[in-house]
């Protein structure tokens, strides 16, 4: 046993490196622009510079939000919307990951399935709504089906592309170490496709929020989308803006949750975004 060359002791250890660029670590910077705009508008309103009938000032939106929250109404609507997004996204993403993995790893499955799926993808998801209502009724199932369809395609495409892009040279390392197909999938393919898969899930989730609004606008008795329609019909722009604000917060929070949950799995990445 021979020590060949001495190099200075490594000083950076795994534990210490997580703290740079923590998710949301720079959230203070992110708040500057919206807060400044809100304050500016509020000031203009107080000074009597703007007519606030159609665009209520932040203070009135906050008041509406507070009333909705105090009556417990807001929680009902938020939970209804989140439940729909959660179920629809869960369903669509699960099927998307499964089919994407299938077509990504098997040429036969790709030739059989992908053309059909691509053709289905070309159909605007909203075009399914009448059919879903006929099939599944006007209540929850048709809404969740619509959201699931919307979430499915970005996840499917992302996972399939991620597998196709795995470096052949890295796979060969697995072969040189005689990994079985299963172990190759677990030890090489899975970690290799993880970054792209997470991006795919994030864009799927974004579409989930898009389609939940569509579904709720078309007919719902609760949910943030219902607040939007209700606000329009009763001429309450402050309620519409309160609902929109909720969407912004919920969408951002959901995206942040995915990021935060997966960040420890991706700390190995050597990319431009991390070095900034």
């Amino acid at each position: 046993m021979q020590t060949l060359s001495q190099e200075p002791k490594a000083s950076t250890r795994r534990g210490q490196r997580a703290d740079s660029a923590r998710p949301g670590g720079g959230f203070v910077y992110g708040l500057i622009l919206p807060l400044a705009a809100a304050l500016l508008y509020e000031g203009a309103f107080r000074a009597g510079l703007v007519q606030a009938r159609l665009l209520p000032p932040p203070s009135r939106i906050a008041e509406t939000l507070w009333k909705l929250a105090a009556s417990g109404e807001l929680a009902t609507h938020v939970i209804a919307t989140l439940l729909r997004v959660g179920l629809g996204f869960g369903l669509g993403a699960a099927v998307g990951v499964f089919l994407g993995a299938l077509t990504g790893s098997s040429a036969l499955a790709r030739r059989l399935l992908d053309p059909t799926l691509q053709a289905l993808r070309a159909i605007p998801s909203l075009a399914w709504v009448p059919l879903f209502i006929l099939w599944l009724g006007i209540f929850e199932p048709s809404k969740i089906a619509l959201i699931a369809v919307g979430c499915f395609f970005p996840v499917y495409l992302g996972v399939m592309g991620a597998i196709a892009n795995v470096d052949r040279k890295i796979v060969e390392v697995g072969r040189a170490f005689r990994l079985s197909r299963l172990k190759l999938a677990r030890r090489i393919l899975l970690p290799a496709i993880l970054p792209d898969t997470i991006v795919a899930l994030r864009s799927g989730l974004g579409l989930g929020f898009m389609f939940v609004v569509a579904a709720e606008i078309m007919g719902a008795s609760e949910g943030l989308g219902y607040l939007l329609v209700d606000g329009q019909q009763l001429g309450k722009p402050d309620q519409i803006l309160a609902a929109i604000l909720c969407f912004a917060v919920l969408g951002k929070a959901a995206d942040w949750l995915i990021l935060a949950a997966t960040r420890p799995l991706l700390s190995w990445q050597d990319s431009f975004a991390r070095s900034g």
Partner: peptide, 10 residues
């Protein structure tokens, strides 16, 4: 240790 990378494991 043999390749002179002791301490680089992490």
């Amino acid at each position: 240790l043999k390749v002179g990378l002791a301490g680089y494991g992490a």
